[in-house]
Computed example of a mutant assay.
Amino acid sequence: MHNSKMAEELKLLGAWASPFSHRIELALKLKGIQYQYIEEDLSNKSPLLLQSNPVHKKIPVLIHNGKPIAESLVILEYIDETWKNNPLLPENPYDRAIARFWGKFVDEKILQIALKFKLAKEKEKEQIIQELGEQLQFLEKELEGKEFFGGESIGYVDVVAYFIVNWLQVHQEVRQIVFISEEKFPVLCKWMGKLHEIDVVNGCLPPKDKHYAYIRAQIEAAKSAIK
């Protein structure tokens, strides 16, 4: 069964700075699946991307034997259901539902609040940091007393949350603003440190200097757009 799976054609359309792409790369690597990575220029999207995801026209897209799957949370579930080794989601239906809940929470709450910060005026920023802190506290509590969100090993919520928290930490360093401190979020910070030490996880992160430069350029562009 595994041999026929290996012979299958798997392509991942992604972008080097996208936490959503990195989720899919990590899931594939954790399961030891061979795939072809195709870097997309998001300012000049390829016909393959537009044809594969005509609804959102966004990355990531996983193309499995010519069939495209879009949206990172959907792709993660597809990977988990197609390749059963090293499962990301728990077997128990209730536990699976809870994992899906936290995955959606990361994208719909934490990420959406963080994105508001980019466009916020100075006086709104303090409020957004406070709001973000309140939501991060929920994650902190959920992780308390556990190695990973998935329990003993990296699971679905770890894969989803890691790259968003890392993205926040990178922004925090570049912008010199505190979103996540060890003082306020000791459990999350310890968990991030543990994941940083895992080679396969670290290997999915973009090069630090390049990433910092990219975010600085984005901040500058946003400033000149506001003027």
Rank of each mutant, 00 (worst) to 15 (best):
G145K: 00
K194S: 14
S224W: 08
A114K: 01
A7G: 12
L132A: 02
I79N: 09
Y78P: 06
S181P: 07
N86R: 14
S21N: 11
K125W: 03
F117L: 07
R175H: 02
K84I: 11
I128S: 02
Q112G: 04
N202P: 05
V174N: 12
N53Q: 12
P87Y: 03
I75A: 08
L195R: 13
I33M: 02
L115S: 12
H171W: 13
Q127I: 07
F179E: 02
G155W: 01
K116E: 14
G193D: 13
E131M: 05
L42K: 11
P47E: 08
V159C: 06
H211T: 14
S224N: 15
W83Y: 12
P206N: 00
V170S: 02
I59V: 14
L42A: 12
F105C: 00
Q34A: 14
A17V: 13
L188E: 15
K210G: 14
I98D: 13
L139G: 05
I129P: 00
A217E: 15
I180N: 04
G133R: 01
R175F: 04
A27K: 02
S43I: 14
Q51L: 12
H171V: 01
E40F: 14
L89C: 10
L76K: 13
F148E: 08
G155L: 01
R100Q: 09
Y156K: 00
P206C: 05
A120F: 07
A27W: 06
D158G: 04
E147S: 14
L88I: 04
I177S: 08
G145R: 00
L26R: 01
H196E: 14
M192W: 03
I98H: 10
K45N: 11
H211W: 15
R96V: 06
F138C: 09
